[in-house]
Design a binder for these strands. Sequence first.
DNA 1: CATCAGGGCCCTG
DNA 2: CAGGGCCCTGAT
Length: 323
Amino acid sequence: MPKIVRLEKRRVLKIKPSAPYNFDRTVYTPSHFPMPTEIWEPAQLWAALCFEGKVLGIKLENLGVVNKPSVRLTFYSNTDISDLVERRLIKEIRFRLRFDEDITPFYDRFRSDEILGPVIKRMWGVRKRLGPLYELIICSILLQNATVRRTVQMMQNLLDKHGTRILLDDKSLYAFWEPKILADATESELKALKVGYRAKQLIRVSKAFALNEINEFELRKAGKEKAKNELMKIYGIGPASADILLFEALGYYNARDYIPRWEQKIFSRLLFNLKSVPSSVILNELTRRYGEWKALAFYYLMEDLFWRHRERKIDWLEREILL
DNA sequence: CATCAGGGCCCTG
DNA sequence: CAGGGCCCTGAT
C-alpha cells in the first residue's frame, strides 16, 4: 500500500495561453488509457507529479474560452518550495501544456485538406500536450505485448507499491516514484507486481535515469535524430516506443514511422474508408498529405475520432477496436 | 481443460 | 532480416 499524503495549497496563479487554446481537448485525450496520475473533468484537471524529487499536486482550471483562453493554476505540496524551484516548475508546466505555442501555421496549411479540414474545425485550439519522459517510457514498456486492460493493471500495481498517493480536493491520485526507487528494486520483487519479463527493462531504464545517463532536458536540445538514437539505446525501447516518445515527450510533430495493428485498422477507415490497408500504405499516405506535420495530423485525427465516439458511439470503433 | 493473441523488443542464426 | 520467446490474462 502506498503512503497517502494530503497536500496543502501553496500558490495560485493565472496564465493566459496564446489563442486559440482548447483546454479540455488539450488536457484530456480520450484515445489514451487513463493514467492514475491525473483526473480530468470538464474545465478542470488534477495532476500529481514528482518534480525535482518533490511530490507535488497541481490543479488547472479553465477560466476562459477557446479564443480568449485563461487558466488558473494551483500548486499543492507539503515541503517548502523555493522561489527558484517554483519558477522552474511554472516554466515546465507552460512548456508541457504548450501554453505559448503558435499552432496557426498548422491550421493555415491544412484547413482545406478534405480529411483534416473538418477535424481542425472540431479540434480548434488543441495542442499536443507533452508528458514527462520517464513516465512515458514506463508506459510504453507496459504497453508492449499486452492488452490495454493489462497495462492499466500493471501500472496500478506499480503505483500502489512504489508511488505516492495524494489527495487533492476530494480527488485521489498517484505520483510516480523517483527512478532510483525502481533502480534499486529486484527483478523478483517487480515480477510480483505482474509485469513479467518487463521487470528487467523497468530496472535498467530506471538505473539509466537515476545515474543521469538519460537526461530529459539534454534530449530536448539534442535534435530529433540524436534523441531517437539515445532513446533506442534504452533496453526495452524499440522503433515503436521511440516514435511515441519523440512525439509525446519531445514534441516532434513528424515523429511517426510506425503504425501498430490497432491504429492501422483505424486509419484504414479514416484515410481510405476501407477495413484493412497495409500500414506501409497508410504511412506513405500520411507522409504525402501531411509531411512534417504527420504525427500531429495523426494525433488530431485519432483524438477527434475518440471525442466523436464519446459523444455518439461509433459502431465500427466499438466493435473492431475496443472489443 | 488447453491454447492463443495482445497498442514490441531482444536475441539468435 | 526472419522468427522464436517473453510474463501474464482473458477470450475462445
